[in-house]
Amino acid sequence: MTPSRTRLSLLIGLALLVLSPLLAAQQPTPVIAARASLADWSDPLEALGTLHADESVTLSATVTETIAELTFEGGERVSAGELLVRLSDDEQQADLRVAQALRDERRNAVNRLAQLQSRNLAPRAEVEDARARLRQVEAEIQALEARLADYRIQAPFDGIVGFRNVSVGTLVTPGTELATLDRLDVMNLDFTLPELALGQVAPGLTLTATSAAFPDTTFRGEVASIGTRVDPVSRSITVRAELDNPGLRLRPGMLMQVTLQRAPREAVVIPEAALIPKGQRQFVLVLQSDGEAYRVEERQIRIGARREGEVEVLEGLAVDDLVVAHGTERVRDGQPTRLLGILDDDTTVPELLRRGRDNAEANG
């Protein structure tokens, strides 16, 4: 090869080397986009809380007597008013029957005297005395019936009864624990927050809670009330929330990880991968329609809070704007692009890349 031809080949190679990036730059660069969407947003605040039953009571005896009947074994659901424990009340029942018989006797006496008095055969004062004696025995019957109620321990509300620790024939005294009863359909969750958060918490705020016992389950509830005092030592305030308890899986005393959703709002949201940080400023690449293709526009935005994989946009984007979510390092402002797909809840980046390769191979 002559020297002149060698130089020509070198010049052509250098020209191709210089022009190839320019030619490649004119080819649309494939990217994957995401659409700016309007979503529910809040600022999470985490805390630890303890569960309590919505209603909880320990039933105990108020008299000294032996247990005559037990209607529960423990762990079953009972209804309000259902009999749980009956104490031996034979003597009291006998006293009641005596008082009832006396009431019948005095009622008959009142009726006879009233008939005689209507025919002026009995003084009015004697009739009034008989009626007073009748009222006296009726009052005694009411007192006996009230005392008999102490011998029957009933469920004060619907709930689940605890374990039975006594047996028929056991002698109980006032204060002896007979049964526990808890209402577990709704649970109270008490947790503390720093006093700085007091202005950001109000009844009705939603929250989620998780437990180590059920790591794959998220329980939802809302703030029911806020304590009236701030602890002067810890500078914290107690908040009470109500949690639904489907399946009655939660139990009083359990430790819960609480995430409180502060300042709930609707926000424009984009994937965090779309951000291009430059110092203290944040940019995104917005796709503008250019016929059948798209052209990239670099745009500065102002962001708010972040959560896993997403970021809140305060300024610079509108709902439904398309931003480059994958391929930001390969495109520049004003460059044409080829859209491989748009990310959503049903698609992933690998899936869209695979579709793009399949389409390219099909088109030769």
Rank of each mutant, 00 (worst) to 15 (best):
T2R: 11
T2W: 04
P3H: 04
R7S: 08
L16G: 14
P21Q: 07
L23M: 13
A24V: 09
Q27C: 04
Q27E: 13
A34H: 09
S37N: 12
L38M: 14
A39W: 08
P44E: 02
L45E: 10
E46K: 13
G49T: 03
T50I: 14
T50G: 03
H52F: 10
A53M: 09
S56T: 11
T58W: 06
A61N: 08
V63R: 14
A68W: 06
T71S: 13
E73A: 15
G74Q: 11
S79H: 10
G81D: 12
L84W: 07
R86I: 11
D89N: 11
D95R: 15
R97S: 15
A99P: 04
A99H: 03
L102I: 10
E105P: 08
V110I: 07
L113H: 01
Q117C: 08
R119A: 12
A122D: 08
A122R: 06
R124P: 13
R124S: 15
R124Y: 15
V127K: 06
E128M: 02
D129W: 00
V137E: 12
E138Y: 05
I141T: 08
I141Y: 00
A143N: 11
A143I: 10
E145H: 01
Y151P: 01
Y151A: 01
I153C: 02
A155V: 08
P156V: 05
G159M: 00
I160T: 14
I160G: 00
G162H: 08
G162E: 06
F163M: 07
V166A: 05
L171C: 04
L171N: 13
T173M: 10
P174V: 04
P174Q: 07
G175Y: 05
G175P: 06
D182G: 00
D182C: 00
R183T: 08
R183V: 03
L184I: 12
L189W: 02
T192P: 01
E195A: 06
L196T: 15
L196N: 13
A197V: 12
L205V: 07
L205D: 02
L207D: 03
S211T: 15
A212I: 06
T217F: 02
R220H: 14
E222K: 11
V223F: 01
G227R: 06
S234D: 04
S236Q: 15
I237H: 03
R240I: 11
P246W: 02
G247F: 05
L248I: 07
L248H: 14
M254E: 09
V258P: 09
Q261W: 00
Q261G: 02
A263D: 15
A263F: 12
P264Q: 07
A267P: 13
A267I: 09
V268G: 03
V269P: 09
P277D: 04
K278C: 01
F283Q: 03
L285G: 04
Q288S: 09
S289M: 03
D290V: 07
R295I: 13
V296F: 05
R299D: 10
Q300V: 11
I301N: 03
V311Q: 05
L314H: 04
G316N: 05
L317W: 06
A318T: 13
V319N: 07
V319Y: 01
V319F: 00
V324F: 09
A325F: 07
R330P: 05
D333E: 09
P336D: 06
T337V: 15
I342Y: 09
D346Q: 12
D346A: 06
T347H: 12
T348Y: 04
P350M: 01
R357H: 11
N359T: 11
E361Q: 11
G364F: 04
